Simulated assay, not measured.
Amino acid sequence: MKDQNQPNLFLEQVISAIRAVVGTGSAPLHEPHFGGNEWLYLKECLDSTFVSSVGKFVDRFEADLVDFTGAKYAVAVVNGTAALHIALLLAGVKNGDEVLIPALTFVATANAVKYCGATPHFVDSDKGHFGLDAKKLRDYLNSHTEQKLGLCINKSTGKVIRVIVPMHVFGHPADLEGLLAVASDFNIALVEDAAESLGSYYQDQHTGTFGLMGALSFNGNKTITTGGGGAILTNDETIARRAKHLTTTAKLAHPWEFRHDEVAYNYRMPNINAALGCAQLEQLQSMLDVKRELFHRYEASFIGLDGVQLVAEPAACRSNYWLQTLLLDDGYAHYRDELLKSTNATGLMTRPVWRLMHELEQFKDCPRMDLMGAESLEKRLINIPSSANLAS
């Protein structure tokens, strides 16, 4: 018979390990860090009266993103979902297509696919880096698809599988080398959902720059924030021009007339948000450094604790450690909900990973492969307090 005190002891040990790092007060999951020129740039923006889609900070923010990520082009938009929506459209996603995405992702990934009139096709996750399982996907595509006229066709539905969207979970890079090979071999475009991975690198190259495009997010809980905002990264000049045109209502340049040459989107990032982003980017490297320091402090605190491990960056990668994450051992998975209750009750904000996409009512009938890896991870992942402010 199991020791009935064991669960309580385990919960106490985990809470103590977190407390050893964050102290005795309340600790949010993630909060923005404002320690630079935010007030100065926002005041400049207000004084100039350029607070909407026109102003110098939008152009500067895009240029600063290019400098940091190494992408040739960046197009700033209102949020990460908008960035992914436009990226999928420009990758050729059409009404009735299918798009391969992780079942283990934030709902925005699936929503962006639906905005295009396409269907999410859910793929399993690797238990090591939490991104798409490239080997399992290759085996699945070999048995469930066929090639016709250079297109990948789902044999069950007859629909074109147009794009694959790896998502870099909690800032940890997915297996981009493996996934790029799958995309090439099966004639599928690759668009990265890099919403969580600004400052993360796969083999010394920034995430979001491997595929045809990458989508970033600057929501209030991300490593840097513009309040609400996102960006499309690409190395293709034609795509960059199209992205900017589509996200600015397809307005043709003219000194005063309003001419629009197609149905498009009012997705341009406002200047006031970009002003905040410019100040945040100036501090990004220092925030990445302190978030890495926070990881090492948690790592030391959790050494020797049975039943749980702190998630570290994958091999040959450098993660931004956006959200520090615990992975419960299989035999401890049933403690997850009690651990979530106990930590939040004591002022430590923790959360589970997202509900898997195929478990949501709106996506329950979408095609999917076997999802054993994602289903196991869903039961065992817990995010713990991760703000850069905690490392000070």
Rank of each mutant, 00 (worst) to 15 (best):
111 N>F: 15
170 F>P: 00
97 D>F: 12
155 K>I: 12
338 E>M: 13
130 F>C: 00
19 R>F: 10
187 N>E: 10
349 M>I: 08
11 L>I: 10
317 C>L: 14
298 Y>K: 01
296 H>I: 06
132 L>Y: 00
332 Y>D: 10
18 I>V: 09
44 E>A: 12
338 E>I: 09
368 R>S: 14
157 T>H: 02
227 G>Q: 07
283 Q>A: 12
280 Q>L: 02
83 A>V: 07
168 H>A: 01
66 V>L: 05
34 F>I: 06
186 F>K: 03
23 G>M: 10
106 F>Y: 15
52 S>N: 12
26 S>E: 15
65 L>T: 02
25 G>Y: 11
363 F>L: 01
321 Y>W: 00
318 R>T: 14
139 D>T: 15
53 S>R: 11
366 C>L: 07
354 W>S: 14
29 L>F: 09
364 K>Q: 13
107 V>C: 09
36 G>V: 08
214 G>A: 13
280 Q>A: 12
224 I>K: 04
33 H>M: 14
352 P>L: 10
80 G>Q: 02
157 T>M: 10
142 N>P: 05
326 L>N: 02
163 V>A: 08
269 M>E: 07
115 Y>P: 08
48 S>R: 01
68 F>N: 03
247 T>D: 15
4 Q>E: 10
384 I>K: 12
230 G>F: 00
377 L>Q: 00
48 S>C: 03
103 A>G: 04
356 L>S: 03
110 A>D: 10
218 F>L: 00
383 N>C: 14
341 K>G: 11
255 P>Y: 07
66 V>Q: 03
35 G>M: 08
15 I>V: 13
137 L>N: 03
337 D>A: 14
32 P>W: 06
193 D>L: 06
275 A>C: 00
203 Q>P: 13
145 T>W: 04
235 N>A: 06
47 D>V: 09
314 P>T: 03
123 V>L: 13
238 T>N: 08
78 V>K: 13
135 K>D: 13
150 G>W: 13
38 E>I: 06
225 T>F: 00
158 G>D: 08
227 G>W: 01
299 E>K: 14
85 H>T: 00
289 D>P: 01
278 C>A: 02
105 T>V: 11
252 L>A: 10
54 V>R: 13
324 Q>F: 00
249 T>S: 15
181 A>G: 12
22 V>W: 01
31 E>A: 09
196 E>S: 10
282 E>K: 03
155 K>Y: 07
60 R>N: 09
